[in-house]
Design a protein around this nucleic acid. Structure first.
Lengths: 144, 144
DNA sequence: ATTCGCGTCACCCGAAAGGATGATTTTGCC
DNA sequence: GGCAAAATCATCCTTTCGGGTGACGCGAAT
């Protein structure tokens, strides 16, 4: 803002000087005052419009959008916790509400295997129950 | 836009006429041209700025930002499912990963009461497990 | 070649969760 | 006061979960 004003002042001074110079060179004819005035008016009007545009170009309307907020896994935290891909997969499945048996059938392993995976997940996440593991998983952005 | 331009022209003409009039009245002194030019410059600069403001007043930049996306419970669905306030409360507690015992202690009821509440929740949500109830609750926007 | 991480599976046992059912109390409402 | 919904608690029984432990195969890294 201040910068713009200063530029405006400088430009104005320069223009006046130029016009003054021109006036005494070859515009010393009849009605030179009118021509001079019109020129000054036109130039300053243009500069003024430009200034006005400059001053108001910052106008911004902040529009809040309910974004789909797609899930982005915090891989850094996954690594930090030492969660293996398989464990992460199991975590997602329990978050979907599947039982150990259902998970076992879905990924073609025994229910015992699922249980050991879950036991390690609980250990790494510090969870006592599967629901708590899901909650922590969500809070840590490990699962959607 | 056209209207503004016309107004601008009219004002400009009027001002020029006024200045012309004034010029031959009492500004016929030494350096009158400089004073005249300065006046015209000032007036037209002002008008130009005003015009620029007018022209750009509608110019807005829509900046989309990520909304906080706070949770809004779908009360319609709550009513539709016939979930009571107490049941809803229990649902959020199991979503937080609490055990039946912990919930009982937290809300000062017996564990049996919690279990009956949960049984009804499972029935109303069509869930077989607490994890599934949580998942459904989230999907239906009943809980955060 | 050995180690290590990962995934796999098994068994035992106790704890937690869930299903079914019945009963009592509280509360809001006509 | 009486009714209906909600909330409360209980008991019995079955299923599921979770903890603990041990073990095996495989592939990558050392």
């Amino acid at each position: 803002m201040l910068k713009h004003t200063l530029i405006f002042g400088a430009v104005a001074g320069l223009l006046i000087a130029c016009l003054k110079f021109i006036e005494y060179r070859w515009l010393v004819v009849a009605h030179s005052v009118e021509i001079y005035g019109a020129l000054v008016a036109a130039v300053f009007a243009a500069v003024g419009i430009w200034l006005g545009l400059k001053l108001t170009r910052e106008k911004v309307v902040v529009k809040e959008v309910q974004a789909p907020a797609e899930f982005i896994r915090d891989d850094a935290k996954v690594a930090e916790l030492g969660l293996t891909p398989r464990e992460l997969e199991m975590l997602v499945l329990i978050a979907l509400g599947l039982s150990n048996k259902e998970i076992a059938d879905k990924v073609f392993v025994s229910e015992n295997t699922v249980k050991t995976h879950l036991a390690r997940i609980f250990d790494k996440l510090g969870a006592k129950r599967r629901t708590q593991a899901v909650e922590r998983g969500r809070a840590l952005r490990l699962i959607p």
